[in-house]
Amino acid sequence: MNYHWNFASVFENWPALLIGVEGTLRLFVVCLLIGMSLGLVVGLGRRSKSKPVKWLSTAFVEFFRNTPVLVQILWFYYALPILTGLEISPFMAAILGISLNSAAYSAEIFRGGIQSIEPGQWEAATAIGMSRLQTLRRIVLPQAIRRVIPALTNRGVEIFKMSTLASVVAYVELLQQGKLIASLNFNPLEVYTVIGAIFLLILYPIVRLTYALERRLARSD
């Protein structure tokens, strides 16, 4: 138990860690944007009156929710290039895997939010002559999205954590840089402690914010 912690060997490599943070953030932002917007589209698709659209969106959600995201990333990285002949970079594979997976989850969140809006809202909007699309855009979505903000923030935190999986296909992000530093300096204990702490430092404030949002929403509803 007399281990001498030596964090200096980690912090000496701060430029490498910084590059990692940048890679993590880049992946996170792209996946967040694609995941949320595609999620909204698919969520609406699941409520569509057109049978094929409804069926396709349901299949999409079920498939991506019921398979592990790491399998998805590896499929996009190793299998998709064979199928399409396109070259897929680690960044691309990670984006595809994480975004589509989060789209499936956020689709369910959006759908739940839309379903939670009382039918009276739809009826009232129809009565004053709005089309379905107008009702959705002006009346239902603004209310629905407000209600699901805590759930979406949670999803965002999950996406941020999932970004570490990109290290499996050697995309340069925080964990990948950590592996590199650990293998050069033989200090895995300190490196992974620091990496964990960085994630905690970034994500914990967001988690607290989600709690606060949930409480506020519970009070106002």
Binding site: V157, K161, M162, S163, T164, L165, S167, L175, G178, K179, P188, L189, Y192, T193, I195, G196, F199, L200, L203, Y204, V207
Partner: peptide, 12 residues
């Protein structure tokens, strides 16, 4: 354990 990535935990 809820706010750090499971892969980092596993490596740790």
């Amino acid at each position: 354990f809820r706010t750090t990535p499971p892969l980092v935990q596993l490596f740790w």
